[in-house]
Amino acid sequence: MSEDTTTAAPPAQPPLKPSLEAVLMVVDEPATEEHLAKVLDRPRRAVAAALRELADEYTREGRGFELRLIAGGWRYYTRPEYGAAVEGFVLDGQHARLTQAALETLAVVAYRQPVTRSRVSAVRGVNCDGVMRTLLQRGLVAEAGTEPETGAILYVTTHYFLERMGLRGLDELPELAPFLPEAEQVEGESQEGVPSFDVDEEDDTGDSPTDH
C-alpha cells in the first residue's frame, strides 16, 4: 500500500476586514498599521487600504461610531453627533471634566514641553503641584527624564492627550505658542527645588504643595 505523499493545504486566512474589526474592538489605544499587519500576518499596504475602506463604509452607512486615524494609529470612536448619549450613559450624572486650572496647566505643558513643574507655575503665576498630579493620574502628561542643569523632572504630554484632543501629532496644535512667555523669560523667575511661593499657600486644588 503506497503512502499518501500529498500535503494538507494550509488553513485559509479569515477575511481581512472582519479580522481588523475584531482586533480594533479590544484595543486600549490606537493601533498602528504596522502592528495590525504583524498580528494578522498581512501586508501593511493591504491593512492600510482595508482600514480606510472600513472608515468610509461606516461613514456612508451613518453608523454611531467611526474609525479614525489618531496619534499614529487606528481606533473606534463615537461619532460626535452621538457623544451626548454616550456621555450620559458613562458618566450617569457625574462630571469628570478638567477644571480651568487643569486646562491652563495642560496648555502650558503642551506648548512648552519638555518643561519643569516650576516653569509651568511661573507661567501661570500660581503653584500647580496639585494640578500636575491630577494630569499625571489621568494620563494626559508624563515624566520625561530630568533637566540637566537642575535635575528637575521634565513633563510632556502623552499619546492619550493627542487621542483626547483628536490630533495626529503635536504639529497640529493651534498656533498659540507666541502668546506664552519664552522659556528664557521664566528661567530666572523660578528654580526647581527652591519654593517660588509661600509654602503655606494652597495650590489650585486646595492641597498644600509637596515635593515630588
Rank of each mutant, 00 (worst) to 15 (best):
Met1Cys: 10
Met1Asn: 07
Ser2Cys: 04
Glu3Tyr: 11
Asp4Met: 06
Thr7Ile: 04
Thr7Phe: 10
Thr7His: 09
Pro11Ile: 00
Pro11Tyr: 00
Ala12Gln: 10
Gln13Asp: 07
Gln13Ser: 10
Pro15Phe: 02
Pro18Ile: 02
Ser19Gln: 05
Ala22Thr: 02
Leu24Val: 05
Val27Gln: 11
Glu29Tyr: 03
Ala31His: 08
His35Thr: 09
His35Ser: 08
Leu36Cys: 09
Leu36Ser: 07
Lys38Phe: 03
Val39Lys: 02
Leu40Thr: 04
Ala49Arg: 03
Leu54Asn: 02
Ala55Gln: 10
Asp56Arg: 15
Arg60Trp: 02
Glu61Arg: 14
Gly64Trp: 06
Leu67Tyr: 11
Leu67Pro: 06
Leu67Gly: 05
Leu67Cys: 09
Arg68Met: 07
Arg68Ser: 09
Ile70Val: 15
Ile70Glu: 08
Gly72Thr: 03
Gly72Arg: 05
Gly73Arg: 09
Trp74His: 14
Arg75Cys: 15
Tyr76Asp: 09
Thr78Arg: 12
Arg79Cys: 11
Pro80Thr: 04
Pro80Gln: 04
Glu81His: 08
Val86Cys: 08
Val86Lys: 03
Leu91Arg: 15
Leu91Tyr: 15
Asp92Tyr: 15
Leu98Tyr: 13
Gln100Phe: 14
Gln100Lys: 14
Gln100Ser: 11
Thr105Gln: 14
Ala107Trp: 10
Tyr111Asn: 07
Gln113Ile: 11
Ser118Lys: 10
Val120Pro: 00
Val120Ala: 04
Arg124Asp: 04
Val126Gly: 06
Asn127Cys: 14
Asp129Trp: 13
Met132Thr: 08
Arg133His: 11
Arg133Tyr: 12
Leu135Val: 06
Leu135His: 06
Val141Trp: 14
Ala144Arg: 09
Thr146Met: 04
Pro148Arg: 10
Glu149Met: 11
Thr150Leu: 12
Thr150His: 14
Thr150Arg: 12
Gly151Tyr: 12
Val156His: 12
His159Ala: 13
Glu163Asp: 15
Arg164Gly: 09
Leu167Ser: 07
Gly169Cys: 09
Gly169Glu: 05
Leu170Ser: 04
Glu172Gln: 14
Glu175Val: 07
Ala177Asp: 00
Ala177Gln: 01
Pro178Lys: 00
Phe179Val: 01
Phe179Asn: 00
Pro181Ile: 03
Glu182Gln: 14
Ala183Ser: 13
Glu184Thr: 05
Glu187Arg: 13
Gly188Asp: 03
Ser190Phe: 00
Pro195Glu: 01
Val199Leu: 08
Val199Thr: 11
Asp200Lys: 01
Glu202Ser: 03
Asp204Ala: 01
Asp207Leu: 04
Pro209Ala: 00
Asp211Trp: 02
